[in-house]
Design a protein around this nucleic acid. Structure first.
Lengths: 183, 183
DNA sequence: ATCAATACCTACTGAAGAGTAAGTATTATT
DNA sequence: AATAATACTTACTCTTCAGTAGGTATTGAT
């Protein structure tokens, strides 16, 4: 829905709290009650945006789980998609929105979705360790670190920069695969 | 000052926008005008908190630059401090506070401080690459990735968890040093 | 004793913005 | 043609704060 794409852009650019629904409505050339006609309240607008982003991630997670190849290959495929989604508007919104922004109910809903993504990450790492394609490590911390690292571009990436999201994602994933130490 | 430690705790726990200065004052058992007696406005309270955190980071950066050893050793020392600071209240505040929270002026002030930290990170990586202690890589992206990864604990670390901040920092830095690929 | 600075207070003002009441215009249905 | 659902509107209300006006109490300096 157009309301969501207008809202997510403003939320990402100015922050949720600094964006009034009057602003969002004005950017669409309509009035605020029009938004209330479609969505119950401001938080629901945000939750809908967050859910759009999470759905893209969930799709990528399903594909990665169903994919072929060694653990490292499937993990890398997922990491690339993960980083790319987080450079799109809806994905970014999930990274830029702090937890305490949401009411306890909405927070829990989103938390459950995030947990599924994190579980996928952890499982893929564990599989890679099991099949020898990934160095032995604590899968939980590894997943947390990978996710944090790939959340970065949501904050500093510029759509008009020299690299495409895909290129940025590849550089980061290569770096995380290789580590700092020389071989 | 007591105002700052009370404020930073509430900002971190509930978010800047969800924290009123009446709340902060009440948690200290004083009235809001008392806060205005010491600090000019709400944003200045935040900026002061952010600056406290950045100062800790700047100290660590100076120590790392002045340190001995190969690039990788000095980088690792800095990364450990960086991660640790970001698990303390004032450090966390820098991670949890979105840019658009600040006015353009304050944003610029903080941005300059952050740039110094990032430059240190980048320089240490470049030195390590030059002396062969770090694998050849794009220093800019490496620094960005390392920082993002080490910002993670600010969001998920619990002070009452099983690991100390130092332990968490060590696990993450080891992981980033080694990378995913087996050797 | 007087003056002034410090550290607070109660009680306001003013603005922003979420959400609503109560309507109108347009299109689809019977 | 009459009804009803859809897609909007203007013009509010109500709450929550940031920030202020204008005080008092306490302490230290002269």
């Amino acid at each position: 829905m157009a309301v969501l794409t207008a809202a997510v852009r403003m939320f990402n650019a100015r922050g949720y709290h600094a964006t009034s629904l009057d602003d969002v409505a004005a950017s669409l050339g309509v009035s605020k009650p029009t938004i209330y006609h479609y969505l119950g309240n401001k938080e629901q607008v945000l939750v809908e945006c967050l859910t759009m982003g999470m759905d893209q991630l969930l799709d990528a997670a399903d594909k990665a789980r169903a994919g072929l190849g060694k653990g490292i290959d499937r993990l890398r495929a997922f990491l690339l998609s993960y980083a790319e989604v987080n450079m799109e508007e809806f994905g970014r919104c999930n990274i830029l929105t702090a937890n305490e922004t949401l009411s306890p109910d909405a927070r829990e809903t989103i938390r459950l979705l995030k947990r599924r993504i994190h579980a996928t990450l952890e499982d893929l790492v564990a599989e890679g360790v099991a099949d020898g394609s990934i160095a032995s490590c604590d899968a939980r911390f590894a997943a947390l670190t990978l996710a944090s690292a790939l959340n970065g571009p949501s904050r500093w990436h510029r759509p008009d920069g020299p690299q495409t999201p895909r290129e940025i994602a590849t550089i980061l994933v290569d770096f995380l695969t290789a580590g700092l130490a020389p071989r």
